[in-house]
């Protein structure tokens, strides 16, 4: 197997890497680019801990190949805060104690951010279904859902 050269953008930074043709994008992010914020909980798209966006579209990075990233815009949890300023979702997750162990948290944040960008005023049910692909075993989801609902409220208020 010869490796593939890929040029892409990760969290706004131009990045180049070599990867095996069958290597997942998650493995590239974690092992080649040192971006370990995306987690591998299942490797089969069932837990959402590796959620990222590719060209703005929410995906599981364990279900994409590194080679596919050529020319794409990739966003991970590491790019969510702007400098010192946390994204409102990050602040609300802390405020609501929406994490216990924290392993699922990056995936939830990336997925919730994608939701609020698409639908700034989601109902509780819409949030629950959008996030159904993100498993959390600690919280029973209660505080996570509340944190997302509260963020949506606050972001709406900030806009109006």
């Amino acid at each position: 197997m010869s490796q593939i050269h890929v040029s892409t953008t990760v969290n706004g930074d131009a990045v180049e890497f070599l990867c095996e043709p069958d290597e997942t994008l998650l493995t590239v992010l974690r092992d080649r680019l040192g971006l370990t914020g995306s987690k591998e909980g299942c490797g089969s798209g069932d837990c959402g801990a590796c959620s990222i966006t590719i060209d703005g579209r929410l995906v599981c990075s364990c279900l994409a190949l590194g080679a596919e990233a050529q020319g794409c815009e990739i966003a991970t949890i590491e790019g969510m805060a702007e400098g010192e300023n946390l994204h409102p979702l990050q602040s609300k997750f802390l405020e609501h104690a929406a994490l216990q162990c924290g392993i699922c948290t990056p995936g939830f944040l990336v997925a919730a951010k994608a939701l609020l960008e698409k639908n700034p005023d989601p109902s509780e049910t819409e949030i629950r279904y959008w996030l159904a692909g993100n498993l959390c075993r600690c919280t029973g989801y209660d505080k996570i859902i509340r944190a997302v609902m509260d963020t949506a409220e606050e972001m709406k208020a900030a806009k109006s």
Binding site: R30, L35, T36, G37, S38, K39, E40, T76, I77, E78, M80, A81, L86, Q90, F93, L94, E95, A97, L99, G102, I103, T105, P106, L109
Partner: peptide
Amino acid sequence: TRPLRPDGLDKVTGKARFGAD
């Protein structure tokens, strides 16, 4: 009281180091 957890920031920014990290 309900203060923020000390390990919280690392866990919402992806910096926290888990077993495989």
